[in-house]
Design a protein around this nucleic acid. Structure first.
Lengths: 336, 336
DNA sequence: CTTTCTATTTAAAACGTTTAAAATTCTGAC
DNA sequence: GTCAGAATTTTAAACGTTTTAAATAGAAAG
């Protein structure tokens, strides 16, 4: 159907090898022949067959990105930045969203094992069952380059980690609320590391951590909405709330407002991530900025370096990006 | 490095062909041999090489999705729904975002021509230069299955179209504002079809279309923000505004609010798309629902049908999904 | 013990490239 | 005109599967 090297060879009256060499710009083939072949190839509208190339080069020029979902703006931005980076280097991105299902993740891992990609980035969150991590480690042992984003691994030598400072992000958020005079502060999310940062800040301020102010709902807008509902019906509401991501924060604010609780007058809410919408929400969201774009770029750079076969610098095996508090209008001094 | 059919053949003491047949569950190979080979393959941790398979099967079990950007929730949802659908059928999704650049789109088209995917969905918006459409048509002629989403093509026989009723969406939005008593109505966006729907509604109500109320900014939150700024400084503001997508609507509301113009008291704003955030925004956004998820599924279904080599039903060559007005709190009766 | 089927296995080609090594052609020097 | 060496071209293997056609083994029947 489509034009092959052989077709060109026939038309040009040379061997297939010469054509291949010529089209790859090999200096060994005579300049006249080379240009003639290139012209003929152009005329015949030749496009090299990627599948055949992949087989012999042992490379598909494609990398896999595993995330829980695309709808989540944090991961969308991550995907965007990784895509831009790798594309500049001639790679494509296979988007692998798991919908938080471990079976999906396993399927992707097996796909990666089959050589369909040259490397992979895992940016999944949530409770990582041992089995996944083992499978991913196994994958890496089979010499498929892998990097983790915002997810800790067992062996950074094998799988480098690029992450944000989860601990500090939560600490900064809590610290901000404490400085505003809040003492009944809640936390919503499932991240151990962030919870630890939160607790540290409270402890330093000698504020007791109240279990009833800690929620473990889904990390979505809807999850946040549910939490807001619960909070609104408490006899003694917290006056400050920290959500593990901006989407939840928005859901919380929305349901608080719907239930007659004013933000920030009655309750202050802080998000984490600083997604684009945070700045455009009503009220504009106080949040902790995570440099997703930079993280994505770095993760991509490290992955491509591994794919190219270079040794990583020791500093590239575990990179932590700092977070930054962004004060907007969803937080205010404690009114009590 | 990794285990091949040959390795298994050696260990099992049979030929490579037998192994291949056995692992594919071919009934011709003796049940005992078959099970023995399967066991050995399992023990050796065998995974078939996707690259080799792709070459001989002339299929990568991968499809390409071209969209302007992932960050845009509309396209994120589209991507999500297409991904889920095709994955159930054993395909993977290569995410191709163009950042609205035509060169990027061309690069992707060439990649598709090289056989890196089994088919492609183009969901790009904006001004489609003739050159792209020609290249895509050419791609389709070379027997790469292609479908368009929300984008018209020249030849639906060659490239089926799955779209929402762009015209009616704008008509419904305008009609809603008119019913609320508005007569100074603005329109923001770059879609000819939608603009036509908008104009039709005004014409039916015998309202004049004012050029100064029509804006052609970027289809992003920031674009909306700029429009809002412009509107807020007009001596005679429109009292109703229709944005081509919800993100712009949100940007508009945000800048209007920041400039002391109240929504919906002073100005009513209608979006289009009904993204998740629309329901959680403050105020909740009146918008026109586009059934993205269904559209994505349908597009995927049609594409896979083409890939499988089936003829499409005549009804599958041009499918229009209806839109639905969702009234929330960003619109109100005209106060004047 | 042939013969004829059937059941099972295998050899070999094909997919479309890349590339190392071998073969050929060309050059200039003697 | 020969020869060494360089320049150019070609042969052939390799990548790891799938699949068709051919080969072999086994069983049943005469």
């Amino acid at each position: 159907m489509s034009v092959t090297l052989n077709d060109i060879a026939d038309k040009a009256g040379v061997s297939l090898a010469t054509v291949s060499l010529a089209l790859n710009g090999n200096e060994k083939v005579n300049i006249d022949t080379r240009e003639r072949i290139q012209r003929i190839a152009r005329e015949m509208n030749y496009i090299p067959n990627a599948r055949a190339r992949a087989l012999v080069n042992k490379s598909t020029k494609t990398i896999g990105l595993v995330i829980p979902e695309v709808i989540n703006p944090f991961f969308a931005e991550l995907a965007q930045s990784i895509k831009s980076y790798v594309r500049d280097k001639g790679f494509n991105l296979i988007l692998c969203s798991t919908d938080y299902k471990s079976d999906e993740e396993k399927r992707y891992i097996n796909m990666f094992r089959s050589g369909q990609v040259d490397g992979a980035i895992f940016a999944c969150v949530g409770d990582m069952m041992a089995e996944h991590n083992q499978m991913i480690t196994q994958l890496a042992r089979e010499n498929v380059p892998v990097v983790y984003v915002d997810r800790d691994g067992v062996d950074n030598e094998l799988i480098p980690v690029i992450k944000s400072d989860l601990f500090s992000a939560a600490y900064q958020a809590a610290d901000h609320l404490i400085n505003l005079g809040h003492s009944r502060i809640g936390f919503i999310g499932q991240s151990q590391e962030r919870l630890a940062g939160f607790k540290k800040a409270l402890k330093e301020a000698e504020i007791e951590v109240k279990e009833q102010y800690i929620f473990y709902d889904y990390l979505t807008i809807e999850g946040g909405y549910l939490v807001g509902k619960k909070v609104a019906t408490m006899q003694k509401m917290p006056t400050g709330l920290i959500a593990i991501n901006d989407e939840m924060a928005i859901g919380i604010i929305q349901s608080l407002t719907a239930n007659g609780v004013k933000v920030p007058e009655d309750v202050s809410v802080v998000g984490i991530d600083n997604i684009k919408m945070a700045n455009f929400y009503n009220p504009p969201l106080t949040t902790v900025d995570i440099p997703v774009e930079k993280m994505g770029q770095k993760a991509a750079a490290v992955l491509l370096k591994k794919i190219a076969g270079y040794e990583l610098d020791p500093t590239e095996k575990y990179i932590v990006f700092p977070s930054e508090l962004i004060i907007r209008a969803s937080t205010a001094s404690c009114g009590e």
